[in-house]
Amino acid sequence: MTMATAVRLKFGPSAAALGALLALAAVSLFVGVSELSPGALFSDPQALGLMMASRVPRTLAALLAGGALAIAGLVMQALARNRFVEPSTAGTTQSAALGVLLVTVLWPEAPLGWKAAVAVVTALAGTSVFLALAHRLPPTQPFLVPLFGIVYGGVVGAVATFAAWQLDLLQYLETWTTGEFSGVLRGRYELLWIAGALVALAWWTADRLTILSLGRDVGIGLGLNYAAVLRLGLVIVSAIAALTVVVVGIIPFVGLVAPNLISRFAGENLRHTLPWVAGTGAALVLSCDIIGRLIRFPYEIPVGIVLGVVGAALFLGLLFAGRGDG
């Protein structure tokens, strides 16, 4: 009983948080260049069409991408046993972008699904290299891992930029490196549901992932198939990162900020915190997308740029806020 009362996040806060997320989604449905009021949905068939073809997909895409990226960050942190890493600071997203570039060159008319598949493979390769090297850094110096990851991502990105420059594809590369939801329409975001399914998979295996974050020796001692769980985590991270890159482009820092905020209040037992982390990531990305739509109305600022600012500022805050209570 002590366990249950000590650990369970109360029902009240979850309901309130879910309500807030739904309210945010409702706002997102009615914010955009073409004016759209709730009343018009019933009287104007064109308004309904716009809603179903553009606003609903866009809002869903932001929620799915945000939630999934937050979980990718969470899993990445369990894999690397370091709370300051996420796909965009571990070379995962950059490797995925390199993969998409590769497909675009070799097979320009490839359907989105195939592009995504190749991006998943390159992201897996890039992340495996990151993890293999990161595990060799001393655990006593936790800041070296994200530092290594950011520069490693930069090096992979430089390879992609060089290739894009040579092939005159810099414009294309830009669309994958700057996350943006303005191009999301019905029929162009559905791959993100796979990312959503991966979040469910992560929740299903939450206990194993938590044990993974306790380290190899503890994991094996508890009878965990350590290598298999490590591979599963790697696949979840790489696939989520690659799918979001292919559909909307790089959205940085979500995977870093959301898990760290939640861990402060609710700890890191993933079975309990995972839905909170996903919700925080979804809310963060959706609000940044709404900000991007409003800040220079009627023009749109890509969500990747807004999050670059908001996320980097929050990251710095996390780096230094954590130093007091060490």
Binding site: F84, Q141, F143, L144, P252, V309, F315, L316, L319, F320
Partner: peptide, 18 residues
Amino acid sequence: DLGLLLLTGVVLGLLFRS
């Protein structure tokens, strides 16, 4: 700590760039 100093600088750089 050197690692934190470097990481802070790198993230500051990302912030300014964005």
